[in-house]
Write a protein that binds this DNA or RNA. Sequence first.
DNA 1: TTTTAAATGCGACTAAGTTGCAATTAAGTC
DNA 2: GACTTAATTGCAACTTAGTCGCATTTAAAA
Lengths: 120, 120
Amino acid sequence: MKTKQAIEEKKFKLTSARKELLAILNKAEKPISYEDIKNRLSMDKATFYRNISKFEEENIVKSFESNDKKRYYEVQISSHAHFICNTCNKIECLSNISPIELKGYNITDMIFKGVCKNCS
Amino acid sequence: MKTKQAIEEKKFKLTSARKELLAILNKAEKPISYEDIKNRLSMDKATFYRNISKFEEENIVKSFESNDKKRYYEVQISSHAHFICNTCNKIECLSNISPIELKGYNITDMIFKGVCKNCS
DNA sequence: TTTTAAATGCGACTAAGTTGCAATTAAGTC
DNA sequence: GACTTAATTGCAACTTAGTCGCATTTAAAA
């Protein structure tokens, strides 16, 4: 696991805030924003954002911006595409989509938008 | 053209601010943010955002959020995918990508992310 | 030309995310 | 286990994209 590896390489200290955040991220089944979990967090907003950036630098976490001006984070274990509903802004992970080849481009992420089952 | 149609249906008045904004949007070769064009605009920020929302309601314009917290707008003429560079945040239009089929989903937009030619 | 609802500019506001700084803490060393 | 120190934290103040209320202006129908 990248987390253990990063700690062993002394990239950062494993503080209680970081343990808490990693636990939440590992349990999450879809990308989460600060807003989504702030009530469950004992750390400050600034600490959340600083740690999540740190995790991104170490390739433990990936993120993207959704339609609602918020940034969503998820653990980088399996690479998969995302679906964002234009109506309710719900985010779903799409596991069955094969990566697209496009010469000259090195594509790492795919986001699809449309209207979800509930909203259509 | 949707613009003329919308005006004829009395959906809105064709003010000079709107003419200016439509001219810029029609000339643009890629999605633009307010920041991108503010120096060329004679209208106020609030007017820009109110008009661009109006255009979106009337399906004249489409938009999405990029990696840089900004919203990008473009005229809705040809439906096409977009590529966003994770390094320099540049946005490119991809015209050769065929729409993806995914049962249960009605996909209207596709965004690909990665590293562009310049940055890799 | 008059009328009037729609549109505009301005300034104040909101909300997500960032930053500076003094206080705290993880983790290596004795 | 106590000591040391750089990394981390909380707090408050800040930044920035976008929104809103309101008094003034304007397109376009009469």
